[in-house]
Amino acid sequence: MIMDGDLHGLERTVEREMGLLRGLPDVAPRPECLARVQAAVRAEALRAARRGPLRRWVRVASGVAAAAALVFGWTTWSRATRGPALPDPEAVVAEWAAALDESNYCLRQLTTSGWARGDATRDAAAELDELLQGLDDSFERFEGL
């Protein structure tokens, strides 16, 4: 096991050794590449600025639609079942809303960030499976309601 003092010593050694890379030839993007990147970034910034309000509107609208569907589903279900062993309706609704929130968050992350969220340890395919499973579960609960 490496102790703190050893780590400091190793860090100092490696920092000294890093001097070797000072001999690395300089590289720079070609001016035409830089111009292309600048243009692409500006265009994307404009698109993102336009998309911002639309995305917010879609989120709000989908939230309202989900709430309406939930109320409708809840009313229908409570009319149909009047047995004594009903689950706590507030808990069911809260659970479903939390699952929907989580799905929304994952979906938003997926559409805005792709997989480069800085988390190098997560497997993209597994994360996608989780997301789809989460959506499935969410719809299943909704059907149950």
Binding site: V37, A40, V41, E44, A45, A48, G52, T112, S113, G114, A116, R117
Partner: peptide, 9 residues
Amino acid sequence: FLRVVRVIG
């Protein structure tokens, strides 16, 4: 840099 634009928010 395109990724930066998309996620900088």
